[in-house]
C-alpha cells in the first residue's frame, strides 16, 4: 500500500518534470487515473474530517428536530385514528339500538294487526254461524214439509192403486166367467200390495 503511494508520488513528480507547463490539476488527474482514488491515503483525513462533521450535524438534526417531530405526528395520527374508531364504534352501537327499537315497534304493530284480524274474523264467524243455523232451520222445515207432502202423495197413491187393482182383479175374474168374491179379491190385492208398496 505504501509502495503504491511512493509510486504515485514518483510518477507525479515525473509528470511534473516532463511537462512543467501543464497545470498541476492535469498532472494529478493523469496520476490518479491510473490508480484507485479510494486508496489515496493523502485524502483520508480530509474525508474523515468532513464525514464526522456531516454525521454530527445529521445526528443532531435528526435526534433533536426531525425524529421527535415525526414520532409526535405519527402518535397524534394514531391517537386520532383510535379516537375516530371509538367514535365510530359508539355510532355503530347507537345505530344498533335504533334498529332494535324499530324492530320492536314493527313487531308490536304486527301483533296488534294480528289481534284486530283475529277479532274481525271471530265476529264474521259468529255472523256466519248464525246465518248458517238460520238456513239450516229453514232447510229442515222445508224438508219436513216436503216429506209430509210426499207421504200424503204416497198414501193417496197407494189407496188409488189398491182401488184400481181391486177393480181390475174383479173385472178379470168376472171376464173369466168366475164369480168375484169381494173379500177374497181384497185379501189377494192387499197381500200383493204389501210387498210392493212401502
Amino acid at each position: 500500500m505504501f509502495s503504491l503511494l511512493q509510486e504515485a508520488a514518483t510518477t507525479a513528480a515525473g509528470h511534473t518534470e516532463e511537462a512543467a507547463a501543464t497545470a498541476a490539476a492535469g498532472a494529478e488527474a493523469a496520476e490518479s487515473a491510473s490508480g484507485m482514488p479510494q486508496l489515496d491515503f493523502s485524502t483520508f483525513p480530509n474525508q474523515i474530517f468532513w464525514l464526522v462533521i456531516t454525521l454530527g450535524v445529521l445526528y443532531w438534526v435528526l435526534s433533536r428536530i426531525a425524529l421527535p417531530r415525526i414520532a409526535a405526528v405519527i402518535s397524534d395520527r394514531q391517537g386520532a385514528i383510535t379516537g375516530d374508531l371509538m367514535a365510530a364504534e359508539e355510532f355503530k352501537q347507537k345505530a344498533k339500538e335504533a334498529e332494535a327499537a324499530y324492530d320492536k315497534a314493527l313487531a308490536d304493530a304486527r301483533v296488534e294487526a294480528g289481534k284486530i284480524v283475529a277479532a274481525n274474523r271471530a265476529e264474521i264467524q259468529k255472523e256466519l254461524d248464525a246465518a248458517i243455523a238460520r238456513a239450516d232451520a229453514e232447510i229442515a222445515a222445508r224438508t219436513a214439509e216436503s216429506e209430509k207432502r210426499l207421504a200424503e202423495i204416497r198414501t193417496s197413491s197407494a189407496a188409488d192403486a189398491r182401488e184400481v187393482a181391486r177393480d181390475v182383479t174383479g173385472e178379470l175374474v168376472r171376464s173369466f166367467g168366475g164369480k168375484a168374491d169381494e173379500a177374497a179379491v181384497d185379501q189377494a190385492v192387499d197381500s200383493r200390495m204389501k210387498g210392493t208398496v212401502q
Partner: peptide, 24 residues
Amino acid sequence: MEQFLVKPLFGDGPVHWYTPTNVT
C-alpha cells in the same frame, strides 16, 4: 476511476484535512 477523485473545491492546492473538497 476519475469520478472518485477527491479534488479541492477552490483552486487546486494539496488536499489538507480541512480543505473544502468535493467530498465536503
